[in-house]
Amino acid sequence: MVMKRTIKNIIGIIIALVVIYNSVYFRPLDEELSKGKEIAFDAKSFVDGIWKNELLNVYDSAIDLTTLLTQLRENPEQTFAREAQALGIGNIGFFKVKGEGTVLGVNENNVLVTVGDQTVEIEMEFIFGNGVRDASGLIKANDYDKTADFNSISESINEKIRQEVVPEFRTKVAKGNKVIFKGALELNKVHLDLSQPEVIPVSIQIIQ
């Protein structure tokens, strides 16, 4: 009787193992990808995923724009080394900035804001390029095999700003409004021009 049960158990285990073995197949990923099933990088989903909890969070620690401009005028080299983000080598640096000011004028392509005694251009139309992505310091080129995928992240970030950040502000803003903003600023350390800094906003609100 015991013998019969043991044989039954062994047969049961063998059948279970055969079923499990034949239920799962492992194939090399590169073999699957070579069959044309390459997983396309979805930049929009990626940006939607990082926007609130990562990207905007990083901009919470942005430097005050007036402080940054003062430091850049006093010691550009050290300020670039300390505050700028850059992907590789060259003269271009990106800064996370925040500020508060009074709207001086609303133009076709931008809103001019007086921050302290400095006129700052908040971009409303020309929201392009890698400024917001690179100033954040969150996303690295070497994490992406394809340069095109890496660049598509910037396009999705910029699209989100054009769709979700700019329109509401643009319809309400008027000369004399008090505004607060956070955004990205691109500067060239060799050809440094601080006459009218251009900020691409990641957030901008009318507070008064």
């Binding site: 850059a86 992907l87 590789g88 060259g90 003269n91 271009i92 080129a141 070497n142 050809h191």
Partner: peptide, 19 residues
């Protein structure tokens, strides 16, 4: 070594060509 090292490109136009 970093696999990719980007080098910035700067626009030269009629306003800044002398630089």
């Amino acid at each position: 070594f970093a696999q990719k090292v980007p080098v910035s490109v700067e626009m030269v136009n009629q306003e800044n060509v002398d630089e």
